[in-house]
């Protein structure tokens, strides 16, 4: 007695979308970002400050987690174990004609079912690139604020201003990211299991499926 034939076939239809390193890097970075947003709120919003207080402790957590924020990515990229992540970052960096078409259709709220996109669509590519840019800007401006004496006072004012602006912008991005994840359960599930179905890939990442079937 083995598994029923249907189940066996479905299992064979599963494709690997994210390897273990990628998922670990994603969830560590995500939990760091959520910690930074929570502690940032407790440093910035008067009502939350009044509730939480303890500025010395909250600030230390915020700064330490902030400095640790790029580590999951850097460590994941540092060795042979980062092969999958490096390949995906290359995919995310490069835009093909289908990405622009996908973006145009999405902006005009039209269906994107037949657009030839690869493993990641333009929205996912933008989300990843913006997240990377936000990490750099927040690390830079946060460092100016945390080590204030190396910079002119007006730079510190500018850094505080940018840190606040980009934080609010990124909270909107994160809400959008989580919203897309919970409304697209197979994509969300693949960030836990690493797997997507062949049918999902055919619909959402046709060029990627093509490459998998024909070889690179």
């Amino acid at each position: 007695m083995g598994p029923p034939p249907g189940k066996k076939r479905r299992k064979a239809e599963q494709l690997s979308r994210f390897d273990g390193i990628e998922r670990l890097a994603h969830w560590l970075t995500a939990s760091f970002f959520l910690t930074l947003i929570a502690t940032g709120a407790a440093l910035y919003i008067p009502a939350v400050i009044g509730f939480v207080g303890r500025r010395g402790l909250v600030e230390r957590i915020h700064v330490d987690v902030g400095l640790a924020l790029p580590l999951p990515l850097i460590i994941s990229l540092a060795g042979t174990w980062g092969k999958g992540l490096r390949a995906d970052i290359r995919r995310i960096n490069r835009w093909i004609p289908g990405d622009r078409q996908w973006l145009r259709l999405t902006v005009h709220r039209q269906p994107t079912a037949d657009v030839p996109v690869g493993k990641f669509n333009a929205g996912q590519k933008l989300n990843a690139a913006i997240t990377g840019g936000v990490m750099l800007v927040m690390l830079m401006t946060g460092s100016v604020m945390h080590w204030p004496y190396y910079w002119p006072l007006s730079w510190r004012t500018g850094a505080t201003f940018m840190h606040d602006v980009v934080a609010i912008f990124f909270v909107v991005v994160v809400i959008g990211h989580i919203g897309m994840a919970v409304t697209h359960p197979p994509a969300l599930r693949s960030m836990f299991t690493g797997k997507v179905s062949r049918a999902w890939a055919r619909r959402h990442a046709p060029l990627w499926l093509e490459d998998l079937e024909t070889g690179p």
């Binding site: 390949a87 960096n93 835009w95 990405d99 590519k125 913006i130 990377g132 840019g133």
Partner: peptide, 21 residues
């Protein structure tokens, strides 16, 4: 790996944000 004429938009977004920062 995915054909077409690729443009490094991701890198431009990251560097552009760093410049704005």
């Amino acid at each position: 790996p995915e054909g077409g004429k690729p443009t490094p938009v991701g890198r431009r977004v990251v560097l552009g944000m760093l410049g704005v920062g």
